[in-house]
């Protein structure tokens, strides 16, 4: 029971990090239709930047990293992503893969590849929970921040003018621009939000373990979170992340550590086969 609950607590904490990256993937996919393979690189560079500012404490360092990587996302959209609109899956995936490579190499040139540390966000190391279990305070903060980010984004999408413009631009960019929306600017916001969310996940991960640019592969689970939740659902990305994280930690506890990543991929495959629209997504309508 203790093992099980501990795996659930740490799984939901790590899962909320996948959820943060997946939220960024969903925002981009929902608005521009691009499947973003650079989420992991954005997360890793966020962790590296935050850890480089570790002397300032967690919150200042994470804040600066979020703003900086949001800027990277915005610049990426303005330079290389915008010409890709409407060109289909393959070009978008390949450019984001190229972007991830550029980010990784540039981070290596600027900051080196040595692992860096970041202090914990709050003073207490762990929280005690029932049945003799406990949860790392950083994971609890991650869970809280990621839930808050999901709620804020959902409000921004559904209750603000920019959110309305974004949803309109996602369906029909030309028609949306006729009614005064500026799809180009809206998509830049989407990329900035995705960059900021990924950087927040990176900073939290840097505080949990260590940060170097190779933690990018950690974010592969975000794809599983995105599909499990439903590619166009924000709340789905968050809950999908938790489901993937808990599965991973349970597999790690009961089957062995090397089963962690493969178990998330099995969850991804099962959802693709049984329910490709995910838990909360809209089923894709294919018009031949």
């Amino acid at each position: 029971m203790t093992d099980f609950l501990n795996a659930v607590w740490s799984g939901s904490g790590f899962g909320s990090l996948y959820g943060l990256v997946a939220l960024g993937l969903v925002v981009i996919f929902k608005s521009t239709g691009i499947l973003n393979f650079s989420g992991g690189a954005l997360m890793a560079v966020g962790g590296v930047v935050a850890a480089g500012l570790g002397a300032q404490g967690f919150w200042v360092a994470a804040g600066i990293a979020v703003v900086a990587v949001a800027g990277v996302g915005a610049v990426a959209n303005l330079t290389v992503m915008r010409p890709l609109l409407g060109r289909g899956l393959f070009p978008g995936v390949m450019v984001t893969i190229g972007l991830a490579s550029v980010i990784e190499g540039t981070s290596g040139l600027l900051f080196g590849r040595q692992p860096r540390f970041l202090p914990d966000p709050i003073g207490v190391p762990t929280f005690d929970l029932p049945f003799g279990t406990s949860m790392s305070s950083t994971l609890a903060v991650a869970l809280g921040l990621s839930a808050a980010a999901t709620v804020l984004l959902a409000i921004a999408f559904n209750r603000t003018s920019v959110g309305l413009q974004l949803r309109a631009a996602a369906v029909r960019p030309e028609v949306a621009s006729m009614f005064g929306a500026n799809p180009g600017r809206i998509f830049t916001y989407a990329w900035a939000v995705a960059g900021g969310l990924a950087a927040l996940a990176g900073a939290l991960l840097a505080s949990l373990t260590v940060a170097d640019i190779s933690i990018a592969t950690f974010a592969l689970r975000a794809f599983a979170a995105m599909i499990v939740g439903g590619v166009d659902s924000l709340g789905g990305a968050f809950l999908g992340g938790i489901l993937v994280g808990v599965t991973e930690m349970l597999a790690g506890t009961y089957l062995g550590d090397d089963f962690r990543l493969p178990s998330t991929m099995v969850v991804l495959m099962v959802f693709l086969m049984v329910r490709p629209q995910g838990l909360f997504g809209t089923p894709e309508v294919v018009r031949p």
């Binding site: 991830a100 990784e104 190499g105 040139l109």
Partner: peptide, 26 residues
């Protein structure tokens, strides 16, 4: 300069090549 880190430079150039071909020479 950057030539002191050929591995990092390769990673950047590789990414730029992919981006350049998609955008300029599909």
């Amino acid at each position: 300069g950057v030539l002191a880190h050929p591995h990092e430079l390769q990673t950047v150039i590789y990414g730029l090549i992919i981006i350049a071909f998609v955008l300029l020479k599909p």
